[in-house]
Simulated scan of single mutants.
Amino acid sequence: MPEELSAEDRKLQTLARATRARTGAAQGAAVRDTDGRTYAGATVELPSLQVSAIGVCIAMAVASGSRGLEAVVLMGTDTLPPADAAAIQEFAGDQVTVHLR
Score class of each variant (00 low, 15 high):
residue 3 E to C: 06
residue 3 E to R: 14
residue 3 E to H: 14
residue 4 E to P: 12
residue 5 L to H: 01
residue 5 L to K: 13
residue 7 A to I: 11
residue 7 A to L: 13
residue 9 D to M: 03
residue 9 D to P: 00
residue 12 L to A: 08
residue 13 Q to H: 13
residue 14 T to N: 12
residue 16 A to D: 07
residue 16 A to E: 06
residue 16 A to Q: 11
residue 17 R to T: 15
residue 18 A to R: 15
residue 19 T to L: 09
residue 19 T to H: 06
residue 19 T to S: 09
residue 20 R to C: 11
residue 22 R to H: 13
residue 24 G to M: 07
residue 29 A to N: 08
residue 30 A to W: 01
residue 32 R to S: 09
residue 33 D to K: 08
residue 34 T to C: 12
residue 35 D to Y: 03
residue 36 G to Q: 11
residue 36 G to V: 09
residue 37 R to N: 14
residue 38 T to Q: 13
residue 42 A to C: 10
residue 42 A to K: 00
residue 44 V to D: 01
residue 45 E to F: 11
residue 45 E to T: 11
residue 47 P to T: 05
residue 50 Q to W: 12
residue 53 A to Y: 02
residue 53 A to R: 03
residue 55 G to A: 04
residue 56 V to C: 08
residue 56 V to T: 10
residue 57 C to G: 05
residue 57 C to K: 09
residue 58 I to P: 04
residue 59 A to H: 12
residue 60 M to Q: 15
residue 62 V to P: 01
residue 64 S to L: 04
residue 64 S to G: 13
residue 64 S to A: 15
residue 67 R to K: 14
residue 67 R to S: 15
residue 70 E to Y: 01
residue 70 E to P: 06
residue 71 A to G: 04
residue 71 A to E: 12
residue 74 L to Q: 05
residue 75 M to F: 10
residue 75 M to A: 11
residue 75 M to E: 15
residue 75 M to D: 14
residue 76 G to R: 08
residue 78 D to V: 13
residue 80 L to I: 09
residue 80 L to W: 00
residue 80 L to H: 04
residue 81 P to T: 07
residue 82 P to V: 11
residue 86 A to N: 10
residue 87 A to K: 10
residue 87 A to E: 10
residue 89 Q to M: 04
residue 89 Q to G: 11
residue 89 Q to F: 11
residue 90 E to G: 12
residue 91 F to R: 01
residue 91 F to E: 02
residue 91 F to V: 05
residue 91 F to A: 05
residue 92 A to F: 00
residue 92 A to I: 09
residue 94 D to V: 11
residue 94 D to E: 14
residue 94 D to A: 11
residue 96 V to T: 12
residue 96 V to C: 03
residue 97 T to N: 08
residue 97 T to Y: 01
residue 100 L to A: 10
residue 100 L to C: 10
residue 101 R to E: 12
